[in-house]
């Protein structure tokens, strides 16, 4: 549904995107993940035809973005970062304006507007002035607009920024609902969001795609498997050396405490390391206070993937 091939984009001397390639199949929800300034917004602006790329091809819903921009825009619903709506208009007025702009047939317009209002839960504020709405409601009005023409593709740029936790929860629920029969790409720098909503993940860093897979396999691939955390009272160096001796342990990291030190063990394969820890502690005659497994979150994977590169890329996302 969305095919991006070798997409590059520069703003003057700043290279915002560097040969970015990814595809989103029909029905997938892709989480587009990256730190601020990584190139998320730039990619989305190119996908929606707001900006052209410098090189590479982008096809959305079977149309080339550069050559058939209007067809692409007809097939896409877009929610830009910050949801810039007209604050002086009423919700209903605004959606009628957008419906006219999107060329919806007069006979279907009323029905489609009603459906969009309904599915995003903003029917009760239809007569309210947009500027007086809360952030969460404005976000939903933006989503209602994006859904208006029943697009096959939905492009959402940082849709949950600025919402309170309850609103975020509702918005995610809404996303899962509308994503059922659509292809969705949503950008975010919040990892839990991707874990909860998305089927697939693409991680972008400094204009390059650094990882692209299903959410679960990214977690497996980059985060290793289940780690074991243990708190042991004993000489730190000795305990650490003893724990590291076992070939099934890939890495041991230690954090010093007053009497108890915290050790984190990463397995080389799929083994459960808890027994190993217990045996080592028993053989050394030390004390064990805590022993638990910890499953690796996408957040750890993310930090792992981009962590090597220090600092942040220039703020190209601010460029308009």
């Amino acid at each position: 549904m969305i095919e991006v091939q070798d997409l590059s984009k520069s703003f003057g001397p700043v290279r915002a995107l560097d040969r970015v390639s990814f595809t989103v199949e029909e029905g997938q929800i892709l989480g587009f993940l990256g730190p601020n300034g990584a190139g998320k917004s730039t990619t989305m602006r190119i996908l929606t035809g707001f900006l052209p790329g410098d090189g590479g091809t982008v096809r959305v819903a079977g149309h080339d973005v550069a050559k058939e921009s209007l067809q692409v825009r007809r097939a896409t619903g877009y929610l830009p970062e910050g949801v810039p709506l007209y604050p002086e208009m009423r919700v209903g007025e605004y959606l009628r304006f957008r419906a006219r702009l999107k060329g919806l047939q007069r006979s279907r317009k009323t029905e489609l507007i009603a459906r969009a209002l309904e599915s995003t839960g903003v029917a009760d504020v239809e007569r309210r002035v947009i500027g007086t709405l809360s952030r969460g409601y404005r976000q939903r009005v933006g989503l209602a607009d994006a859904l208006l023409a029943e697009p096959k593709v939905l492009i959402l740029d940082e849709p949950t920024v600025g919402l309170d936790p309850e609103q975020v929860r509702q918005f995610r629920h809404l996303l899962r609902e509308v994503g059922r029969d659509r292809t969705v790409i949503l950008s975010t720098h919040i990892l839990s969001e991707v874990e909860l909503v998305c089927s697939h993940v693409a991680i972008i860093h400094r204009g390059r795609i650094v990882a692209r897979d299903t959410a679960s396999s990214i977690r497996r691939r980059f985060g290793g498997l289940e780690r074991v955390v243990a708190e042991v009272a004993g000489p730190l160096k000795e305990v650490r050396a003893a724990l590291g001796k076992d070939p099934r342990v890939a890495r041991v990291s230690a954090a010093a405490g007053d009497t108890y030190h915290r050790f984190t063990l990463e397995p080389a394969g799929g083994e459960d390391l808890r027994e190993t820890v217990f045996k080592v502690v028993r053989d050394g005659g030390w004390l064990l206070r805590e022993l638990r497994r910890e499953s690796v979150s996408l957040e750890d994977a993310f930090v792992d993937i981009i962590g090597g590169a220090s600092g942040r890329s220039p703020g190209v996302e601010e460029a308009r």
Partner: peptide
């Protein structure tokens, strides 16, 4: 306000 982006991504 950035609403130009919404306007110009309409068909």
């Amino acid at each position: 306000t950035g609403s130009l982006e919404l306007l110009m991504t309409a068909p």
